[in-house]
Every structure is written in C-alpha cells, then in structure tokens.
Design a protein around this nucleic acid. Structure first.
Lengths: 217, 217
DNA sequence: GAAGAATGAGACATCACTGTCTCAAATGGG
DNA sequence: CCCATTTGAGACAGTGATGTCTCATTCTTC
C-alpha cells in the first residue's frame, strides 16, 4: 500500500511525455493504481501537473547543485551536469515540452532560476574562452534540454542503452559530430573524451578580453 | 475564401506543438477559421492529426530530396539538410514529439523511410572518416530532430531570431560548443564555418560524379 | 448583377472525461 | 488476531468537447 507520490509522479511524467492527452484513468493505470486513489492524492489534473512541475523543479535543482557547475573546468562541469541530469531526464523531458502550457508562478519562477544557473555555466565557459562565442548561452541551454530529453525518449524507446545516454549527450553537445583530426583511435570508447580534452587544453586559462565581450550578441 | 488545407494544418501543427491538449475550437481559431469549417475539411480530430502526419511526412521528404543529402561532402549535406528543414520545423517539432502517439501505418512507414535516409547520411559521413564513430547514426538522427525542434520552439517563443536558427542547429550539431583552437577569430560570423571546413578538408575530394550536374542553386 | 460555392455563427444531442461518492476488500501495525 | 487505514471497483451527476445540423452571410465566378 502506501502509494508513493513520487513514484506516481514519475510514471505520470513518463506517460505524459509520450502522450500529453492521456486521461486521468490512463495515468492511474500507468502508475499501477486506481483512478480513485489517484484522485485521493491529487485533487485533479491541474493539481497533478502542478505537483509534477514542483517536484521536477526540485529534483532538477538538486541535481544542479550536486553537479556543482559553478566550480572547476566548464567542460567537466557540463559533463557532470549532463550525468546528473540523466536520472531525472523523464521529468526534464516533460517539463521542457510542456513548460509554457501550465502557467504556474512558482513553477515558472523555479524554472527561470534553473535556466539562469545553466546559462551562467555556458557564459562562464565563454568568458574563459573554452566555449564558442557564436552560440548564445540561451541556445546552448535550450539545446542541452532538448538533447537530454531526446536521449530520455531514445532510451525509453529502446533505441539507446541507458548507460550510453549521458555520454552521447555530453559528447555531442561539447564536441559535435565532426571527427577531430587529432582523434587517432575513435574505436575506443574514451576517444571522444580525450579528443575534447585536447581541444580544451590550450584555451583553459586566458583569452584576450576584447574578442570576448562583443562576440556573443 | 477557399480555405487552404495546408495553411490550416500548419497552424494546427504550430498550436499543437505548444499545447497538445488544444480543443478543435482552439485549433480552428488558431487557423483563423470557424469550428464548422474545420470540421468540413477534417472529419474529426483523428482525421486532422492523421492529415497532419501525412502532410508533414510529405513536406519533410520533399525537403530531404531537395537537400540532396546523398551527394557531395557529408558536412555540406548536413548543412543543406538543416537549412531545408527549418521552414518545416513546425511540422517536424510536432511529429517528433507525438510520432508514437498516433499510430498510423502509412505515417509511421513514411517516417521510417525518412529516418533511413537521414541515418544513411550520417553513416556515409562516418565511412568517409568525417563524422565520429562513437556516436551512432541513430542517435545523430534523433539529435538532429531534437535540435531542429528546439530551434523552432525557440524561434516561436522569440528567444532566437529566425535567420540564426539554422546556423545554430547545424553549427552545434556539427562542431559542438567547444571552441576550436584553430578558430582564431570567433567574432566573425563565418568563424565556425571555416573551422569545420578545415576539419572536413581531407574528405572533400572524393565526391561522386553526380554532384557536378546540380551544383547548388 | 445573379447564381453557385464556401464560410461563420449558433443550436443540438452525444459522448468521454472528470470529480465525488459508497462499499467491500486488502493491507499493516499494534 | 483485531482494528485502523488505504485501496479498488463501480455508480453517479456535472462538464466540456465533439460531431452534425441549419441558416444567414460573404465571396467567387460567369
């Protein structure tokens, strides 16, 4: 017994990500409980979605803090962020897809705070000369969400192994799909990692301040 | 008068992408027509979504053919593909988000064919040694859809200028967010382009003979 | 300008979903 | 083992969306 609200919300997020029009009955069934019980825990659909927003927000923010993206090398910070985000990718996928639909002050506020923190990471990477200037932090933030959500979707559908998901996201996000000429042994699983480390290496410290400020509009 | 089915479907795709639970009345209003007229053209919601699937499929496939991704340098092929996809990004965003929901044989079949063609491009790039081996064609395909959809969403929300959208997608997809050490002048809009061109360089010579006759518009 | 076609507005019954209720069954703690 | 709590199943009315209809209006075409 003793229905776990969090489990229910997780199941709801997974289902609603795929089928946004799912009925309360379908949601209950997906969570393995009856419709009556679902209504006992959440007054209605709105309340459920709102709880979904709050929980997702809390979870994502926890992960954000756990990843300590404000510290250390920005590249590693992105990797930590992606790795931490994967376990809550279901929530992220749902919230990313539906965030503008259910307008709740508290949820949107929390989401804006998350955006700000993630965007700050990308800005920091640009200021250090590690990240490209011609891709705005806002776009990189958007792309991060989109890729995490895509990987969640891909895993949920069985097209991608769960253990590969975070690597595929962070590698694509950081290094893109082009093969680096320096990457001598791409057959190794670590090849991409070493390639991007190499790329970051020389730029890790100082960059002329002039090019930095006007590059990203 | 003479309601243009395609215009209606385009408006429906845009709306449903943001609000999957939109009612027929809302869809009609978004398309600038009455609910009665909407029902005259589409028997019901299912029929409308099905038509949406078919049209989106046709449009994407047309763009795919127009981009001639089977020919020439894979990197340029990806750029052409992204550029061609942008005008139909609304459809792509909707179909990508809801594709597994509305199971229609014809639509799914068409989608599989599109997946196959896009995947073949990435496989070709890998075989030529231009694209990374450690990111599967399936994942790159998924990421392409996700990023195009994300850019459409971003543009629709006013966070990104329409003219920047295709560059942001293709640059991130191809080159990632890491600054290349060779890219000396990131202030130039073409900086990223030159960087990736450099990476591709060695593979640019071996182009199939067909590429000569249709040397880009 | 007149005839034909298409649209908009609204009425209408129907239907699926919703939210609330009751009651029997299952679970878990003391 | 018994009692309190929670759940599942189903009934029920209320609500909003749906699909169909009619009729007046507008646009198109000749």
């Amino acid at each position: 017994m003793a229905v776990d609200r969090e489990d229910v919300l997780r199941a709801a997020a997974d289902l609603l990500t795929r089928k946004a029009t799912a009925s309360m009955d379908e949601i209950a069934r997906a969570a393995g409980i009856s419709r009556a019980t679902l209504h006992r825990h959440f007054a209605g659909r709105d309340a459920l979605v709102h709880a979904l927003g709050l929980l997702g927000n809390r979870l994502v923010e926890e992960r954000l803090t756990a990843a300590r993206i404000e510290e250390g090398d920005p590249v590693d910070a992105v990797r930590r962020l992606v790795a931490e985000a994967m376990p809550v990718s279901g929530f992220l996928a749902f919230l990313y897809g539906e965030n503008q639909l259910y307008e709740s002050g508290a949820v949107n506020e929390g989401w804006a705070r998350i955006d700000e923190r993630v965007g700050a990471l990308f800005r920091r990477g640009q200021e250090r000369g590690v990240f490209r200037y011609d891709l705005t932090p806002a776009w990189l933030t958007e792309a991060l969400y989109a890729l995490v959500a895509a990987s969640a979707w891909s895993v949920q559908d069985g097209r991608t192994a769960p253990r590969d998901a975070d690597r595929m996201v962070s590698e694509l996000l950081l290094g893109g799909m082009l093969r680096r000429t320096e990457a001598a042994d791409p057959t190794s699983g670590k090849a991409a990692h070493q390639a991007s480390e190499k790329a970051v290496d020389p730029a890790s410290e100082a960059v002329d301040p002039a090019s930095g400020k006007e590059a990203r509009t």
